[in-house]
Design a protein around this nucleic acid. Structure first.
Lengths: 221, 221
DNA sequence: GCGCGCAAGCTTGCATGCAAGGCGTAGAGT
DNA sequence: ACTCTACGCCTTGCATGCAAGCTTGCGCGC
């Protein structure tokens, strides 16, 4: 799950098992939008491109289907799952629910102090991104901020779910509309309020702010 | 291995693909506790029991590992994931977060009327289970009640996540401690309050009641 | 007796072969 | 001209073979 910040290097991945490489390569192609929605792709093609056999590609496709990125049509092929606006809502809603729950646990578990420095550093990073009008940098920091809150809850199930949602959200971001630069300032303001809510140990305020924050993103899509 | 299926009397599963059968059979064995925590199992064994080859079993193991029921040790085998109390907390916490979110959506989306009959029927079913002191029946109705709320939200992502959590929760129920009969009455009371909260379109009350309800279960484990 | 190395036996990971199923198209029949 | 059928190509699903890795236990040297 820990990918380099600049996640678009050449395709000459030589680490990990063949199945992992097939999984990572295909997922990346889907998320980046290289493979369009509805595209019909076959195991043999991917296998050929990666220089491996169909077996690990088959396993990769199964994983991707389980994660909602592919739809497997038995003996016909695999189609890249088209994403609908309602799906975007669904994903965002789950992210909101999970993150709010995690924030509440961090606050209830009295672990605010140990995450606050990281959160504030990420806020500063986002401010820098806004100042330099660097959208990619902003989005990266955005991801890391939300991920930090979830990680702080130390709930592996939550982290796993959030990871799945994050992938799908990335795909939506890349495929539908890239957030306009003007949105950055508003998002940063939301984030500042979120961190302040954590600092004040106010789980309800966090949840409420998160709700408006997510709704703002929802409108963008 | 291409001999008549003389060795498949116990498992009468004839539907679905071989991979699905391997998945269902293994998952069921894990959830029911037939396979103990920490048990080391190999693909070849399962394949032999089901009369299929290792390939579909391998795929099944991958799915089960992704769902947190197995841990794959490369070239050593697959161990049934031991469950810890903290994992139980994690699972319950996520269930709570997801269900509360779904209830809120049902209420906000003004779909209360269309689920209320089903919920009330399930309450009646639970009452009957309490009267006849039928724990299995109660648990089944319990599952269906919570599932009904989530299904009513019509969020496929939520349903998928809830399904994964339900499996793990079933396993915990079967492995750790079976809820005592005395708990049924309290649980039913909680459920009644939950349904009433939905009826009153009070999402906050639902969330709060759900919190105490889950915490009650948490104490049992 | 004790420690060390090596090999055998298990495991999975992947490649490949084969069969079954879906889909399009061409061709025959009306 | 239109429809129905059958064939061929495409796909996946599964079985099997082979290689590589980890563990373990046995034998050998000390």
């Amino acid at each position: 799950m820990a990918e380099p910040k600049t996640a678009s290097p050449p395709v000459s991945e030589t680490e990990g098992s063949a199945a992992d490489r097939a999984y990572a390569a295909t997922k990346d192609a889907i998320i980046r939008g290289e493979l369009e929605s509805g595209a019909l792709l076959s195991e043999a093609v991917i296998a050929g491109e990666l220089g491996i056999s169909r077996t690990p590609v088959h396993e990769a496709f199964l994983r991707l289907a389980a994660e909602g990125l592919l739809i497997l049509a038995s003996r016909r092929g695999a189609v890249v799952r088209p994403l609908s606006p309602s799906e975007a809502d669904d994903v965002l809603e789950m992210r909101e629910a999970i993150e709010a729950s995690c924030a509440a646990r961090v606050i209830a578990g009295d672990r605010v102090a140990e995450v606050l420095p990281e959160l504030k550093a990420l806020l500063a990073e986002q401010q820098a991104a806004v100042d330099s009008d660097d959208l990619d940098r902003f989005i990266d920091a955005d991801d890391r901020l939300h991920a930090a809150v979830i990680a702080a809850a130390r709930n592996p199930v939550a982290s796993q779910f959030a990871g799945l949602l994050r992938d799908r959200q990335h795909r939506m971001r890349n495929l539908l509309i890239r957030v306009k630069s003007g949105q950055m300032a508003a998002a940063l303001k939301d984030h500042t309020k979120l961190v302040r809510a954590i600092e004040k140990r106010d789980a309800a305020a966090y949840a409420e702010t998160l709700r408006t924050h997510v709704n703002r993103n929802r409108g963008v899509l």
